[in-house]
């Protein structure tokens, strides 16, 4: 693993600061708990899933865990929305500059060029910025999926309240949405996100950026070259908070 290498000239950049990592940890923890306590409900015929309920001490306990994790996820989501607003304000609402995750025309072009590269029709990958089109896709899959889950989940949590005030079919719609979107979200995470950070032969067994937030110089040069160029060439007076904090370069030291 990269952070264990004690190379002398290994430089590290901060890719995710502590606040960003905390948001991800909240999401990670709550997602796993929600998935584990929710899946047996979705697949009652699969016997080994029921083991989860027996493990925690019954359906009631699992239900409570699911709801606590849901609250954590909702709070995390709200924190993130607040964070985006903060970034926007910091950058005078220039959204392209403030929100690195915003999809741009470049991402569509990158997708095309990357596909050509995969088929052998281009020699090299296009140059990616801080977040490549795959990561942005991941982000927006969550940006769509989680509000769906949260809203439908709240309806199912308080069926009498929401049932009374919303149209007839609200509960049925929520039931279908919550079950089906859960499957999509879990599959997408286990398949796509896990590929990008675990199964990918370049990253296997795990990319540790989510833990310590640092990306090595090699990696950023190879995978996010435009971001690297920007960091090297920009001034410290650059307003963007994300870039400013990413400017810490630690020669020699690999300590976290």
């Amino acid at each position: 693993m990269k952070e264990n290498k004690q190379k002398e000239n290994q430089e590290y950049f901060v890719r995710l600061n502590l606040f960003q990592r905390i948001q991800h940890w909240m999401l990670l923890g709550s997602f796993i708990l929600l998935a584990v306590t929710g899946l047996p409900m979705r697949f009652p015929d699969v016997r080994w899933l029921g083991f989860v309920y027996r493990l925690v001490g019954g359906l009631e306990v699992a239900r409570t865990i699911h709801r606590i994790a849901a609250v954590i996820m909702i709070v995390g989501g709200l924190i993130h929305l607040g964070y985006i607003l903060y970034l926007l304000k910091k950058n005078n609402f220039k959204i392209l500059k403030a929100w690195p995750m915003i999809p741009t025309w470049k991402d569509a072009v990158d997708w095309w060029k990357t596909s050509l590269y995969y088929f052998g029709l281009r020699d090299s990958l296009p140059q990616y910025d801080r977040f490549n089109f795959r990561e942005k896709f991941d982000y927006f899959a969550v940006f769509w999926g989680l509000p769906v889950m949260m809203l439908s989940g709240l309806v199912l949590w308080f069926p009498v309240f929401f049932g009374n005030h919303l149209p007839n079919l609200a509960i049925d719609i929520a039931y279908i949405a919550h079950s089906d979107e859960a499957i999509l979200a879990i599959s997408a995470i286990v398949l796509w996100h896990f590929y990008n950070v675990h199964y990918d032969p370049d990253k296997f067994p795990m990319s540790w950026i989510w833990w310590h937030g640092k990306i090595s110089k090699e990696e950023i040069k190879k995978e996010h070259p435009l971001e690297y160029q920007r960091l090297i060439l920009s001034d410290i007076a650059d307003n963007s908070i994300s870039n400013k904090q990413s400017l810490e370069i630690n020669p020699k030291q690999n300590k976290r």
């Binding site: 069926p159 009498v160 009374n164 079919l169 509960i171 049925d172």
Partner: peptide, 21 residues
């Protein structure tokens, strides 16, 4: 059961969802 349930809640068919679908 569900004290406070009004008509709209009751009209959901979560008990026999297939029929509603």
């Amino acid at each position: 059961c569900h004290p406070g349930a009004k008509m709209n809640f009751a009209m959901s068919n979560a008990n026999h969802l297939e029929f509603m679908v």
